[in-house]
Design a protein around this nucleic acid. Sequence first.
DNA 1: CGCGAATTTGACCCGGTTCAACTGCTGTGG
DNA 2: CCACAGCAGTTGAACCGGGTCAAATTCGCG
Lengths: 246, 246
Amino acid sequence: MNDTSFNSRDCGTCPIRHRAVCSRCEPDELEHLDDIKYYRTYEAGQPVIWAGDPMEFVASVVTGIATLSQTMEDGRTQMVGLLLPSDFIGRPGREHAPFDVVAVTDLTLCCFRKKPFEDLMGSTPSIGGRLLQMTLDELDSAREWMLVLGRKTAREKIASLVMIIARRDAALHKRLPKDGMEFDLPLTREAMADYLGLTLETVSRQISALKKSGVIQLQGKRQVHIPDLQRLVSETGDDVDGGHIF
Amino acid sequence: MNDTSFNSRDCGTCPIRHRAVCSRCEPDELEHLDDIKYYRTYEAGQPVIWAGDPMEFVASVVTGIATLSQTMEDGRTQMVGLLLPSDFIGRPGREHAPFDVVAVTDLTLCCFRKKPFEDLMGSTPSIGGRLLQMTLDELDSAREWMLVLGRKTAREKIASLVMIIARRDAALHKRLPKDGMEFDLPLTREAMADYLGLTLETVSRQISALKKSGVIQLQGKRQVHIPDLQRLVSETGDDVDGGHIF
DNA sequence: CGCGAATTTGACCCGGTTCAACTGCTGTGG
DNA sequence: CCACAGCAGTTGAACCGGGTCAAATTCGCG
């Protein structure tokens, strides 16, 4: 319940202002959004929504990380989305949540009551347009993820995940990924396993293997150091050039 | 090059009029779309776009089936989209195609030149709104597909695919899937393997196994008969109730 | 210091891949 | 009318990558 600065209701100082669903809004449009928004915080490990629950709001992730996942009756679970700051939760025009949303770290959401948000979207093209763009981007990354799940080996899966996190970390600091970069793996071994369609034991083994062959170096369990980015890319199995422009 | 009736440029008789990206358009809006549209046909097996190609158009599938897929350097390929009539190809605001698109059957597209389409989208909320809705639906099904790829056994994968095709076939005829229904598998064993992240041998074996245990019956290689739908659902590993409302 | 959770490591096993042979269908040409 | 090539699909046998089960280790923390 520690209200940090971004909880000031001031969109001007919002850390996700330039990337979130509201990024194209003019000042007067922001005011309308402001009328229907409220912040909500969750502790690490807490559920945000269960699949099937009625959704009374949509939201942007302001700080922290959440996961979107599905679980079968027998307990097998597959992560289907990794929600980082500026990502959008929920969908206009649907009553019930299709997947579970869980806070992985402490989490702050900027929530909008669903009905008013839908109305506002109807009258504000800059919101709908931005949401379409974000959704198309997510669809593209979901499709890349499908290649990882369906066709890559365990080692390639781990290398791909490290690379994805490296890219996002670099983007967060507004620079390109480069040799020697360091960053944190924000997920437990089990969460990585759920992300990649593996068991946590396999994740652990492959991380050890990548460490032993010098592709990555570890400080502690979570801090990663990449001596040679090109080497890591080649371990992902992806085309060395094309595809990822940024 | 056999111009069938829907090639008459008449949106009034278009078979996908009620589901495609244009489904919310008013008559005057349709006229604007009409100005920038043209039909294109492809024979079964022909490529529509290669990943990385510049895209000069976006399009709706009118008749036939296409696949969206990714291939790694060593030839491993993963299907990431199955495009049926009314589905949309391409994305406004992107220059290059991210994935390969290939016609599986003979295919007719209703194409719109990209730039004019983007302009029209800016001035016609009913197009952007419908496209957002379609994209969100696709994202949801991509996420269900991720569970299939990441966590299901070969047998569950095959049962899931049969079920998906059964649902779509039923929806096409505007009714619910039911016991005793029959339909065609529109994909080769290899295409099913690419869809499910399996080898074609495993697909063949599991289809035989489902046939032997009476879950499905086959007339020829492609025609499927489902004696007991509930039995098939239970083979998919999915929750018997929740989830799929329609 | 000692507990519990996260992680690592080991040994064994199995589902799905790999490689290869075979079946059956369809179309083509002598 | 048949021979035969070519392709989709089936089936078999051996192999192996990753899962499973179990135990050891590390780490954070009261």
